[in-house]
């Protein structure tokens, strides 16, 4: 299995067109939890999350106060989806069961 790739903040700015000020703000505001907190390197999840924040602010006009609320709700949706998919897999196992 490939090792998860980590990126420095400067690399994220260059490769993914995300503003440096937003990356720093996201870390300070705890909107993201860097994959490597010591070196503040970010993984794919962190980058996608900051990109979502950037789109919420720039494209949808969301203010700073609303960002953590929206992130929390999005995380809950993803958690529920994961639970539902686990449940569907369990029901499939039941359908295959023969007494």
């Amino acid at each position: 299995m490939a090792k998860e790739q980590y990126f420095k903040i400067t690399e994220v700015v260059e490769y993914f067109s995300i503003k440096k000020t937003l990356i720093i703000q996201s870390i300070e505001q705890k909107w993201i939890d860097p994959a490597d907190p010591e070196t503040q390197k970010l993984d794919r999840e962190d980058i996608a999350r900051i990109n979502l924040i950037q789109e919420l602010q720039d494209d949808m006009g969301v203010n700073d106060e609303a960002v953590p609320i929206i992130l929390h709700l999005v995380d809950q949706i993803n958690y529920l989806r994961l639970k539902m998919e686990t449940q569907k897999a369990n029901v499939k196992i039941k359908n295959d069961f023969k007494p």
Partner: peptide, 10 residues
């Protein structure tokens, strides 16, 4: 380089 959608990483 395409930034993935957040839900795809989750």
């Amino acid at each position: 380089t395409q930034t993935p959608f957040y839900h795809e990483t989750q």
